[in-house]
Each structure stands twice: as structure tokens, then as C-alpha cells.
């Protein structure tokens, strides 16, 4: 009896009955869409260690270069221009790892669409690469007292070029294997590094022109990414069979 003179003692059987019914409902409950954050964290968990290794390697090599080379804007630009391809070496292979690992069919029939998963990977891979590039530029800028703004384009332009090349080649040659993806990345990185160095074109390009190249490559990259996302939304295993 409580202070009001009542005797309201719950019946354990009724409680059990409610719990059982409620849990049955929970079993049958159709899942809502996975929250974006949960999907992001999940994809982040399964990002290839190789991606992280290349970021770390680039950072280490950069630090070594910065501490051993003579200070100068030109040297700073060269270092960043060389670091960018290394950082982005596994960007596109990681993006399309479901195709390279034969997981795309399994992933693309899930409630969370292939395009959603791809978007998460774009955010993660792009975010990691751009963050590390920014960090490297900041390190060089800080260590050598060179303006950050003067340097960042020399990191972002080769990054854009490499991504554009990789995305284009993935579609053109319909890369489906891990070895193909890796080979493509290495070749693209070599092309981005080697050709400008051989032709000496780097030294001839003004800062203003670099700015223009950055904007142009950025627009092309955005266009490619949007195209891929649109293809992922429509029927078909991404670009590999779409007509």
C-alpha cells in the first residue's frame, strides 16, 4: 500500500508480455536509412591501410626533404609537386575498391545505394588527401617561411591531374582488377611527375597560369565525379556497362 492508500503492484506476467510484444515489433521493424555519420564511420573503418601508409610516407619524405634541402620557393614547389602524386596514389583505387575486389554486386543490392557508399568514400578519400596536402603545404610554408598561398596550388594541381587521369583511365579501360588499378595509379603518378620535369614546363608557368590550371582541373574533376555519381544512381554497375 502506498501513501495514497493504493495497492498498485505490477503483474510480472503483464510486463513480460509487453516486453515480448515490443521486442517482436523491434524484430519486424523496417530499418530506416543508415545515418550518414554511421555510414561514414563504417567506410572509414574499412579504408585500406595502404592509403594511410602513403600519407605517412609522403609526410616523412617531405620532412626529410625540408630538413636537407636548401630553402627556397622553387624547392618548396618541387617538393609539394612530387608529394601530391604519392599522397593520391591510392585515391582512385580506393574509391573503386568494390569493383576491384568483386564486392560491387553485393554492395549495390543493399538498401544503402551504391551511390551513397561512393559518396562516403569520396568524402573520406578526398578529405584525407586534401587534408594531408594542406598539412604538408603548411609544414613547408612554416619551415621555410614561404607563403602558404604561393605553395598550395603546387600541391593541388598535380593532385587534380592525377585524379582526372585515373578516373578517365578507369572508365576508358574498364579496369576491374586490383593489379590493374595499382598499375594505372603508378603510371599516372609517373606521368604527372615525369613529363613536366622533362619538358621543364614547371618553371615556365606563371603563378596566375597555375591558378587558371587549378580552376580548370578542379572543374573537370568535379564534372567527372558528378558523372560517376549520376551513373552510380542509375541502373547498372557504375560505368562498366552503361550505354
Amino acid at each position: 500500500m502506498n501513501k495514497f492508500g493504493e495497492s498498485i503492484v505490477p503483474d510480472e506476467n503483464r510486463i513480460e508480455q509487453i516486453i515480448t510484444e515490443g521486442q517482436r515489433y523491434m524484430d519486424s521493424h523496417v530499418p530506416q536509412r543508415t545515418p550518414r555519420l554511421v555510414l561514414l564511420v563504417q567506410q572509414l573503418r574499412y579504408i585500406s591501410p595502404l592509403l594511410w601508409v602513403t600519407q605517412l610516407l609522403a609526410l616523412v619524405l617531405l620532412v626529410i626533404n625540408v630538413s636537407t634541402r636548401a630553402v627556397g620557393v622553387a624547392a618548396a614547389r618541387e617538393i609539394l609537386f612530387a608529394a601530391a602524386p604519392l599522397i593520391s596514389l591510392f585515391a582512385v583505387p580506393e574509391l573503386f575498391k568494390d569493383i576491384c575486389r568483386d564486392m560491387s554486386e553485393l554492395e549495390n543490392v543493399c538498401k544503402n545505394s551504391g551511390s551513397r557508399i561512393l559518396t562516403m568514400r569520396l568524402i573520406i578519400v578526398g578529405g584525407i588527401n586534401i587534408s594531408v596536402l594542406t598539412l604538408l603545404t603548411a609544414v613547408v610554408s612554416g619551415s621555410w617561411g614561404v607563403s602558404f598561398a604561393a605553395l598550395i596550388l603546387y600541391a593541388l594541381v598535380p593532385f587534380n591531374c592525377l585524379c582526372i587521369l585515373n578516373l578517365l583511365a578507369f572508365r576508358l579501360f574498364r579496369i576491374r582488377s586490383r593489379s590493374g588499378a595499382a598499375a594505372l595509379s603508378v603510371l599516372s603518378a609517373a606521368a604527372v611527375l615525369y613529363l613536366p620535369a622533362q619538358t621543364g614546363v614547371l618553371a615556365k608557368i606563371s603563378e596566375r597560369l597555375w591558378g587558371g590550371i587549378f580552376i580548370a582541373t578542379l572543374l573537370i574533376l568535379i564534372w567527372q565525379v558528378l558523372r560517376i555519381l549520376r551513373a552510380a544512381k542509375s541502373q547498372g554497375v557504375l560505368l562498366w556497362n552503361s550505354k
Binding site: T34, L39, C110
Partner: peptide
């Protein structure tokens, strides 16, 4: 034919797809 991501255990594989299935 289907593949899997490297270093996936059987449990990882199932939980990964369960999350994708919502």
C-alpha cells in the same frame, strides 16, 4: 562470384553488409 575486402573476417563481412542493408 563475389569477393571480399582484405583482412575481413567472416564477422566483419557480415556486419559490413548488415550495416549497408540498414
Amino acid at each position: 562470384n563475389f569477393g571480399y575486402y582484405p583482412n575481413f573476417t567472416g564477422w566483419d563481412f557480415m556486419m559490413y553488409l548488415a550495416a549497408l542493408k540498414g
